[in-house]
């Protein structure tokens, strides 16, 4: 089963973050459906009509990012000039959700596109730059909006059609974290950049299956290179493979000798109720893992329920053009380890 995946060669194993930065603050902004879901109480702000007072869905998405970063500054007590850089991304063409949303802030801006893995990518890059001493503080922000994503990737919002059981529902939400060189945790202690993996899936309505091989590749490389065991963690969270990708990942890793099932969950399965919210295979979009991590998971760290987790952000790398041209969908999975305590022997620990 392991054949066909990248080997754990030189420069392909886990990266230990020097001087592990603290996740100093976090903020979330979500839509009504997400607020009505099982994690609804964990989110900071929500809108009743998903328009966030704007006249287009794209502006609504930008407004979510603006609100999320504004709230992050307020919660952390920081000013704009205290933040060295912001790493931000979304699903819209040319990342306009982020570039317009963060226009009001005078913070150096890096636009990222990692599809639904963007939150993990942003957290990884900002942790390395803060840990490496280049910034004293950096932020990661991302968002997705159901309506702007539907318009861009699928059909008009009022178009009448049936979704397949494997389809996922794009989360309307934005999450933001602030990483700081000083603080008392939770810390980002290890990261593992993902490698694009493509296994011939061409169905844009089954992105869980397209992304699962990337999640398996990253997790297998992590366990093999770090020596850690699945049971060392309070939770291993992928985001967002949905039901199909979740089941494939758990089963294939088990076949490879890594039984993650006891601690494994997927952000796409956590954010909505599969019984009452009719989201088929679960949630998706950059805002899915961003809001689950920045809302639910970091709160669990704050109250001591979690001490050690792996967050594996998963993204489907495709466009409407690539899908229409019949190109297969590649997946990417970036791993971030969040720990309540710094590992023994860490520089600056």
């Amino acid at each position: 089963m392991t054949e066909g995946f990248a080997s754990i060669g030189k420069n392909r194993g886990v990266l230990t973050v020097p001087n592990p930065p603290t996740i100093r603050a976090w903020a979330t902004v979500v839509g009504k459906k997400e607020h009505d879901g099982p994690l609804g109480g964990d989110f900071d702000l929500h809108a009743e009509d998903d328009r966030f007072g704007m006249d287009t869905w794209e502006k609504a998405e930008s407004e979510m990012q603006r609100l999320a970063l504004g709230l992050l500054l307020k919660k952390s007590g920081c000013r704009e000039e205290d933040i060295g850089a912001v790493f931000a991304g979304d699903l819209l063409n040319q990342c306009t959700g982020s570039s317009f949303g963060l226009l009001d802030y005078g913070i150096p801006y890096f636009g990222l596109y990692g599809a639904c893995s963007t939150m993990a990518e942003g957290m990884m890059l900002s942790s390395l730059l803060v840990g490496g001493g280049y910034f004293s503080q950096a932020a990661a922000v991302c968002s997705s909006h159901f309506c702007s994503a539907e318009r861009q990737f699928r059909t008009p919002i009022e178009y009448g059609g049936q979704r397949t059981p494997t389809a996922q529902w794009t989360v309307t939400g934005s999450g933001a974290v602030l990483l700081s060189a000083d603080g008392c945790g939770p810390y980002i202690t290890e990261v593992l950049p993902g490698i694009s993996v493509q296994k011939g899936i061409t169905d844009a309505n089954n992105m869980g299956a397209a992304m699962a091989p990337a999640a398996i590749d990253t997790l297998a490389r992590y366990f093999a290179s770090s020596g850690a065991q699945p049971d060392d963690f309070d939770a291993i969270l992928t985001g967002d493979l949905g039901q199909v990708g979740h089941d494939i990942t758990a089963d294939m890793l088990y076949a490879m000798g890594y039984d993650i099932r006891r601690v494994y969950n997927d952000c796409g399965l956590m954010i909505y109720s599969s019984q009452s919210q009719d989201v088929h295979a679960g949630g998706s979009g950059c805002g899915c893992s961003a809001s689950v991590i920045c809302g639910h998971v970091l709160k669990k760290f704050a109250c001591g329920d979690y001490k050690n987790i792996l967050f594996v952000g998963t993204g489907a790398l495709m466009s409407t053009t690539s899908v229409q041209q019949g190109l297969p969908i590649a997946g990417i999975a970036h791993l971030v380890r969040i720990s309540a305590e710094k590992p023994a022997g860490t520089i600056g620990g």
């Binding site: 011939g200 299956a209 091989p213 199909v244």
Partner: peptide
Amino acid sequence: MNLDAKTYQNYVKAYAKK
């Protein structure tokens, strides 16, 4: 067990609800 694209696509079919 080899995980080429064809094998994976067949493997996935069992997981996708109809």
